Computed example of a mutant assay.
Amino acid sequence: MSTPQELVACVERLASLPAVYHRIRALLDDPDSSVQDLANAVSSDAGITARVLRAVNSVLYGFPGKVETIGRAVNLMGMQQVHDLVLSTSVIGAFSGVRPARMHMIKFWKDCVFRGLAARAGAKTLGTGDPERMFVEGLLADIGHLVMFQAAPEATDAALAAAHKAQAPVHEMEQEIVGCDYAEVGAALANAWHLPNGFAAAIGAQIRPALAGPHVTEAALIHIANQILATGGEAEPDAAALALIDPMVAASLELDTDKLAHIRGIAEGEQDSVIALFFPAQG
């Protein structure tokens, strides 16, 4: 049996965020920093610069005309959105060399992208939360499973098999067999990497959003995205998703199958383009 912190400690030796991300985070926390300071920090890393410009000029943001410099990107998007975009590309890059033998990595990242897009579409459709922040939180919401399959592959695989056999929730079997679940491990990684306030709370409470405190809306949007993703193969996917969503979440956000269908449609429509953006070789 393992704690979330023990599993994260195993992976931290293999994956870490780049120095440029930490510089950007420090600038965001510094009230005296400027847009130019942030642009200079991003521009110091050629790989991240290329990914940010590719994203800014993609369907994900839809700005008119071509954005050719990081300075213009920061002016258009704002410092917070540039930070979040750098964070998402940095996490994907940090785990690029981590390929657990028992995981289908292409499917994992495609599901992560879909979850991020569904969380983003949910924020827009339901008129709550920051859509761009929700994309990043949704993208990272299942990162706990990547940690678990790397650090405790046999136990994690056994938990998934047991959940499938018993038709039980995965997190319950993970608690019983591994000692913790994917949401707890994801929150522990967010804390270990000192991600912005709210990431750990929202990721950690995605199963039971009411536990997220002031970040309950973010946790609820991830929770909704999870159920939309999980029911993609059902005959009536939106009715199936609604049945899985926490009743308190469904009631507070006035969810119905039409809203879920709208969110699902947006995520499905954007998925291929965004996968090509973050994973050019897989698009």
Rank of each mutant, 00 (worst) to 15 (best):
A141R: 08
D258I: 09
A230G: 13
I266C: 01
T69M: 09
F149V: 03
A152F: 02
V74K: 08
G65V: 13
R51S: 15
A190C: 15
A55C: 01
A212M: 02
V274F: 03
H145V: 05
G47H: 10
G233V: 07
D30V: 11
A118S: 15
R72K: 14
A212W: 03
F199E: 07
P131N: 10
A202F: 08
H171E: 11
G78C: 08
V86C: 06
L14R: 15
A183K: 08
L126G: 10
A94T: 09
G127C: 06
G47L: 08
D181V: 03
S16V: 13
L7M: 04
D142S: 11
V185I: 12
C112M: 12
R51M: 10
A212I: 06
G269R: 03
R133V: 15
S16Y: 02
I266L: 08
A235K: 14
L17I: 12
A188L: 04
G138L: 08
Q36F: 04
E154R: 13
A118D: 07
R264D: 10
E154D: 14
R99Y: 00
S44M: 06
A151P: 10
E268M: 09
Q227F: 05
Q282N: 05
P169S: 10
A151L: 09
M173W: 00
G78T: 11
D130V: 12
L38S: 01
G204Q: 02
M148S: 10
A121T: 12
P196F: 00
L146C: 05
I106A: 12
A250P: 01
I263F: 01
H83L: 12
S252A: 14
A243Y: 00
L87I: 13
A151Q: 05
A55M: 09
E137A: 14
V185A: 09
V20W: 01
A166W: 01
A166N: 13
M103Y: 01
G93W: 01
F63S: 08
E137H: 04
T257H: 00
D272T: 13
L14W: 04
L244I: 00
D246P: 01
F95P: 04
Q5S: 14
V185M: 07
C180D: 11
L255D: 05
G47D: 14
N197P: 08
A225V: 10
P100Y: 00
L244S: 11
T156W: 00
P237W: 04
V35G: 03
L28H: 11
A46S: 15
E137W: 02
V35K: 05
T231D: 04
V98Q: 06
P209H: 02
H145I: 03
L17V: 14
E218K: 04
G97P: 06
L255V: 07
A94P: 05
T156F: 02
A225L: 07
A158Q: 13
A166V: 07
V35P: 00
